[in-house]
């Protein structure tokens, strides 16, 4: 296998909050190959956004009290980079698209200026060149009348158009990695599909690797080659997208897949939710964080943290059921098959 362009190794992030220290990310590891799309899925509060923001060092210092582990980009641990070195990296090598396009653009600056800002910073281009590139970028993301639109303000754009602008901004300096933090969550369903198509086409054109953070498994199926499922600040299962969808090993992943609405199911068939709530990360418990919600919980789950079990070609899950000693193993395998038969 090639050397990955980005490797996150045992990343830990904690926050100081009023209710104490919250361990939001607890030992996350993953790697990203050139031109690949990795989806990080999980419910709210699972630490996926925090993971993404800490790659660029965007978490406020006053709150993010502890960061440990390694983030290796092109052989260097960028977690130890100074602010200045990070600033040179942001936007030029790794850039980011945020969740809500209604708030992620400066309301008092024309979108052209916002597009050109990164170009000035990283490419040291002339004003005319930057202006020309801004128009080109807007055309590339499918904004009509780009020559006129560069001089308008964000409030003159719809949500979907704004997200196109944000994507254009992120790609302006040809970064090697694009981190998209729930880029379609705040948009209409029809617009969501357009934005995802746009990102896929741009990726084909530019060869940018994408880390896609989402809780929409439909988006994952369309976009990603690799999936990491996060729960309570940990990656509980990761692997190639086919394995995750057709051979999920972790009960949480199965729960997520079952809770997804499908078009071919009978209309009166209710969705199957995962009962319970995610754990409170300010009071971490012993053992597996999913144990209180798990239908297959065993004694060992509440006492010890499950060790990662890798099956084949990078498919890994952390669950005691995968241990040879677990007597539920047969049932687990059977249920996995049922889910995959549905899909």
């Amino acid at each position: 296998m090639n050397r990955p362009i980005l490797a996150v190794d045992n990343l830990e992030v904690s926050f100081h909050t009023q209710s104490g220290i919250v361990d939001a990310v607890r030992g996350v590891s993953f790697s990203l190959q050139k031109g690949e799309t990795l989806a990080i899925v999980g419910e709210s509060g699972s630490g996926k956004s925090v993971t993404a923001k800490s790659i660029l060092g965007l978490l406020p210092k006053q709150i993010a009290s502890k960061r440990a582990g390694k983030i290796i980009y092109e052989g260097k641990n960028i977690l130890e980079f100074s602010l200045r070195k990070m600033q040179a990296l942001r936007g030029a090598e790794i850039s980011m698209v945020f969740q809500d396009p209604m708030t992620s653009l400066n309301p008092t600056m024309t979108i052209g200026k916002q597009l050109m800002e990164g170009l000035y910073r990283h490419r040291k281009v002339s004003k005319a060149k930057a202006a020309q590139k801004a128009v080109e970028m807007l055309q590339m993301v499918g904004i009509p009348n780009a020559e006129e639109r560069v001089n308008t303000y964000p409030h003159q754009f719809s949500g979907g158009m704004r997200q196109r602008v944000v994507i254009a901004m992120a790609l302006a300096c040809d970064p090697k990695i694009l981190i998209a933090d729930e880029p379609t969550t705040a948009l209409d369903v029809t617009i969501q599909a357009q934005i995802m198509d746009l990102m896929r086409n741009l990726q084909k054109k530019t060869g940018t690797a994408i880390i896609l953070i989402t809780h929409d498994l439909g988006v994952v199926a369309k976009m990603a080659q690799k999936v990491a499922v996060m729960y309570a600040g940990e990656i509980v299962e990761t692997g190639p997208v086919e394995d995750i969808f057709y051979r999920p090993m972790h009960p949480y992943t199965r729960g997520l897949l079952q809770s997804m609405p499908r078009l071919d199911a009978p209309r009166d068939e209710p969705l199957i939710p995962i009962p319970g709530f995610p754990p409170d990360l300010s009071h971490p418990q012993r053992g597996c964080p999913f144990a209180p919600r798990c239908a297959h919980v065993m004694k060992v789950c509440n006492a010890f943290f499950p060790l990662p079990k890798e099956t084949h070609n990078g498919h890994m899950a952390k669950c005691w059921l995968l241990d040879e000693r677990a007597n539920h193993r047969d049932r687990l395998v059977r249920e996995c098959r049922e889910v995959s038969d549905h899909g």
Binding site: L83, Q87, A92, E117, M169
Partner: peptide, 19 residues
């Protein structure tokens, strides 16, 4: 959030504050 967008573009703290 647009401040984080600006930072994510690599704008320096001075630039973020001024612009």
């Amino acid at each position: 959030e647009y401040i984080m967008t600006a930072r994510a573009k690599g704008v320096t703290e001075w630039g973020v504050v001024m612009r």
